[in-house]
Nucleic acid binder design. Structure first.
Ligand SMILES: [Mn+2]
Ligand SMILES: [Mn+2]
Ligand SMILES: [Zn+2]
Ligand SMILES: [Zn+2]
Lengths: 138, 138
DNA sequence: TATTAATTGCACTTCTGTTGCATTGCTTAT
DNA sequence: ATAAGCAATGCAACAGAAGTGCAATTAATA
């Protein structure tokens, strides 16, 4: 039983061949992925299977969904210490206007926001857009 | 020439009947609207006309688009003092999980975020979700 | 009034996300 | 080992939102 299989198994996800492949793929990318990205990588696989696999990962708390404002949902593996499952891990996301990649800035938490009287916060989403480190290196 | 006509005109928008109606409608709502909301309000009008009207408003800088994470784009009139046209007005948006309305918190600017080495911010979007003042009043 | 430009209406397309259902594969109890 | 039962996959189709092309109107201007 490999590392990944154990990870899936311990989160109540049956480690099928497809799931292991998708997990591995997501793990080796350091940016968030759209369903179409995964589709590109596994052209022989069914879109629905990929979709449901990612959704399963999400439900089981090993992947979180990101709305980066591009109109396409992105997904990224939860880093160790990410508490998505519990009450939302409020780290911020960065979208590069140059390379179009979306990156989890896991270390950067969303600052506390004080709201007007009567408003109660339950969740928050902060996306910063600009130029990423790779793109600004040139 | 009415107030609204002047407003449109001074922003380079020809004040047609339809445009005046839509502007008025958006002005009397205090929450952000989806295209479908406007569609509901003007059932006899063509969707495309409504769509293009809002897009025109946006291009001319009197409306801004909001991605509140629901998957449906929202639009709201720019308040006096909103500098969308210039470099983005970084106020935050609140989405109520109860009444499903999205509100501009024009007074609440997005706090400065310091990013890791190499990252350069150009824009930011912060959406807080929770219970709005009207809903929490009960 | 004739010419030109902007606006609107209608039809149709694309893209993303999502579901229903039959089929296949895996697990477990007999 | 076999059969029953449940989970995963493949295939088809749908829904909603956003957007485009083009013809028909309507408004502005010469
Ligand atoms: Mn993330
Ligand atoms: Mn706003
Ligand atoms: Zn980049
Ligand atoms: Zn509310």
């Amino acid at each position: 039983m490999t590392e990944i299989e154990r990870k899936l198994d311990s989160n109540g996800i049956r480690p099928t061949a497809m799931r292991i492949l998708i997990y591995k793929y997501m793990a080796e990318k350091n940016n968030a992925l759209a369903l179409t990205d995964v589709e590109q990588a596994f052209q022989k696989a069914e879109r629905t299977t990929l979709y449901r696999t990612i959704k399963t990962f999400e439900e089981k708390g090993i992947v979180h969904q990101i709305d980066d404002g591009t109109g396409v949902l992105k997904y990224a593996l939860c880093e160790p210490g990410c508490n998505c499952e519990i009450d939302r891990d409020l780290h911020l996301h960065f979208h590069c206007n140059s390379c179009d990649k979306t990156i989890c800035l896991t270390q950067h938490k969303i600052p506390h926001i004080n709201l007007p009287e009567g408003f109660m916060a339950e969740d928050a989403n902060l996306v910063v857009k600009g130029i990423c480190d790779s793109c600004s290196a040139y």
